[in-house]
Design a protein around this nucleic acid. Structure first.
Ligand SMILES: [Zn+2]
Ligand SMILES: [Zn+2]
Ligand SMILES: [Zn+2]
Ligand SMILES: [Zn+2]
Lengths: 127, 127
DNA sequence: TCGGTTTTGACAATCATTATCATTAAGGGC
DNA sequence: GCCCTTAATGATAATGATTGTCAAAACCGA
């Protein structure tokens, strides 16, 4: 049975109070800065668990995994600011059906997909 | 000025004769197996160059970068078999316009996107 | 409270990738 | 073709994120 520890809760809270995506290292640093003695390995484990339970989304950036608390529990994608990390959750049936169609047309089964849109948010756009 | 070396050419050829996406390590192993004395660092450099010149596509998988020779020189995406690596190149205006639309609607500029579809190809599908 | 089991965390180990830097070899000018 | 400048190579060390180890601590049901 899975146990409730303050460490898991601390990671969950830290994730929820983060604006955009954060790395395990960054989240660990942030917790330490507030005086939490949580270990780095524990942060990695907690984030992996949250992601596998569908409570967090993750994506790869610059060779590291970054995570974000996931409010809706449904399948969705993200629009992410390359500069400040601001993230908007996107649900798009168009893309879902397109992905399924493309897979089926080519004889592929058990399809899934990775779809992320990056850009500069209003605050970070030049001009 | 960029120089032509047999090493670059060897990497380019190895990439072109590979079926799906390959990692730098795998490509280096393959070259060694054929007797080539090319160095690992050189393979990394050549792949990075090819990717930046638009002659190869790359994506992240399991924390490593994998590459593939890119026949058309236009923007496109991939449908990849999770089991054997077979890759189909996909061009889809639907997704391109969708990505632009989503970014614009949210005030994002300079948008780009990552779109990959994974599945099991006909040969690798069960049943 | 007690005890079996899970979780933690300090640390070592792993693994892909990058930096270093002395040596090699393009390729332009002669 | 021969030199010479300089980019490219490659053996190796360094980096950095992530995972494995395992004794000690924490959960939680009985
Ligand atoms: Zn921004
Ligand atoms: Zn989707
Ligand atoms: Zn396949
Ligand atoms: Zn596209």
């Amino acid at each position: 049975m899975k146990r409730n520890t303050w460490q898991r809760e601390a990671v969950r809270e830290a994730l929820e109070t983060s604006e955009g995506f954060v790395s395990a290292q960054a989240l660990h640093s942030g917790l330490h800065a507030t005086g939490s003695p949580i270990g780095l390995a524990t942060v990695y484990r907690a984030l992996a668990d949250l992601a596998s339970e569908g409570e967090a989304d993750s994506l790869q950036q610059d060779g590291e995994s970054i995570y974000r608390a996931c409010t809706p529990n449904t399948h969705h994608h993200h629009l992410i600011c390359r500069n400040c990390g601001l993230t908007v959750e996107i649900e798009a049936d168009e893309v879902e059906t397109w992905a399924q169609k493309v897979a089926a047309q080519n004889g592929f089964t058990q399809a899934n997909h990775i779809v992320d849109v990056f850009g500069l948010c209003t605050s970070c756009s030049p001009g």
